Computed example of a mutant assay.
Amino acid sequence: MKILVTGAAGFIGFHLSKRLCESGIEVVGIDNLNNYYDVQLKLDRLAILEPLESFRFIKLDLADREGMAQLFETEKFDRVIHLAAQAGVRHSLKAPFEYVDSNLTGMMSILEGCRHSKVQHLVFASSSSVYGMNESMPFTTDDNVDHPVSLYAASKKANELMAHSYAHLYGLPTTGLRFFTVYGPWGRPDMAYFLFTDAMLAGKPIKVFNHGKMRRDFTYIDDIVEGILRVADKVPQPNPDWASAAPSASKAPYKIYNIGNNEPEELGVFISTLEKHLGIEAEKEMLPMQAGDVPATAANIDDLVRDVGFSPSTTIDKGLGEFVKWYKSYYS
């Protein structure tokens, strides 16, 4: 089997590619290596992947229509796991066109490539941010997601709609995964836990938004990867009994899942756990909610458990402990 992993130099893409290669699966990884955060971190991830016998890296931008078409024509992928995107809720307030180029034009390149090369299964990354102004907890995949509060969230919602149209029109089996606050070793430096660690070790105050009253379904990277792998092996089938009140499935070969820890924690608890592993008490700068943010996220994963028999279970104590060990080693 040959799998395309987009965003292979990114946080989730790196861990997934490594796991696939260790299982003996041929992986072609692409990434444009943009400078949204430290490029050296991306290069260091690739330095671990590239010696692996079953991994090949190609530097390529999703918005390069000709390059993407050529990639699909040449490689003949069995499956595609599409993780590349312009990430970051707050950055979308500053650079909106980057989200159009990467998340919308890029998704179009993926869908067209999968369609013309008859890919067996497309799995793509969505986000818990699509739930937007939804106040019903926990979030279920049958909730309405028509009220995003950031352009990033809107672009992810658009990805789900684009994917469904291709599943319907061309019979392309497609599964979207709504990730909930992913963290762990080799993570993204723009994420709160990474910024907290940077600041605490430098003796600087940490910025705590919504006065620490945020609640998040923090999900450890190994659980995310396991969920992706299990879902990738379960190719969605058309559901002839589908009713429009259940938007996570369809009469087309299309499915949406949440992947979250199913145990949301208040930000203050997350910070105190990080303090314990760093051995440092943080100086906290309490701030109001930021534009584009939501006060809480929580994942209902009943359908994930039912369909693939998996439930994320890594505690934040274990997960943050692993992150701190990696951080100290990497930045030593």
Rank of each mutant, 00 (worst) to 15 (best):
E265F: 13
F180Q: 05
D31K: 11
Y170E: 09
E66C: 03
L16Q: 08
R188P: 02
V130P: 01
L46A: 13
N261C: 14
A167L: 00
S165R: 12
H82R: 01
M108N: 11
C21N: 10
S92K: 02
T6G: 08
I206N: 08
G319M: 01
S136V: 04
H91E: 12
T297S: 05
S126Y: 03
V123P: 01
V123G: 01
D307A: 04
E285T: 11
A298E: 04
Y330G: 05
L46S: 12
N103Y: 15
V130D: 02
V27K: 14
F179E: 01
G67A: 11
M162E: 02
S150H: 02
V308C: 02
S127H: 07
G321H: 06
A85F: 09
I271C: 09
R215H: 12
S332I: 07
P173H: 09
A299Y: 03
A8E: 04
I316P: 00
Y331K: 10
M68Q: 01
E53M: 00
L41Q: 11
D38N: 13
M286C: 05
V225S: 04
I12R: 04
I259H: 02
T140K: 12
S311Q: 15
G13D: 07
M162H: 06
K276D: 12
Y166W: 06
G319T: 00
N32M: 13
Y37F: 14
C114P: 00
Y166E: 02
G13K: 15
V208C: 14
Q86K: 12
M289D: 11
I280A: 06
A245K: 14
V5M: 04
L161T: 08
G106S: 13
D44V: 06
K118M: 05
A291Y: 09
V294F: 03
V324K: 10
Y327W: 15
S150N: 03
D146S: 13
V145R: 08
I224H: 04
P264H: 15
M68E: 05
T140W: 03
Y152Q: 02
E135Q: 06
V123I: 12
G10H: 08
A202I: 03
N144D: 15
Y254D: 03
K76V: 08
S109R: 00
G88E: 01
S248G: 06
S332D: 09
H164D: 13
S248T: 10
G132L: 03
H116L: 08
E160F: 07
I206C: 10
I3D: 00
P236C: 10
L93R: 09
L60M: 12
T297E: 04
E160I: 07
S117G: 03
V145Q: 08
L278M: 11
L52N: 13
R65P: 01
L46Q: 13
P189T: 10
K204M: 07
A85Y: 10
G268D: 05
R65Q: 13
A9Y: 08
G7V: 05
Y183F: 11
G67V: 06
E265C: 11
R115K: 15
K118A: 09
G13A: 15
L93G: 14
E73Q: 14
M162V: 01
S127N: 07
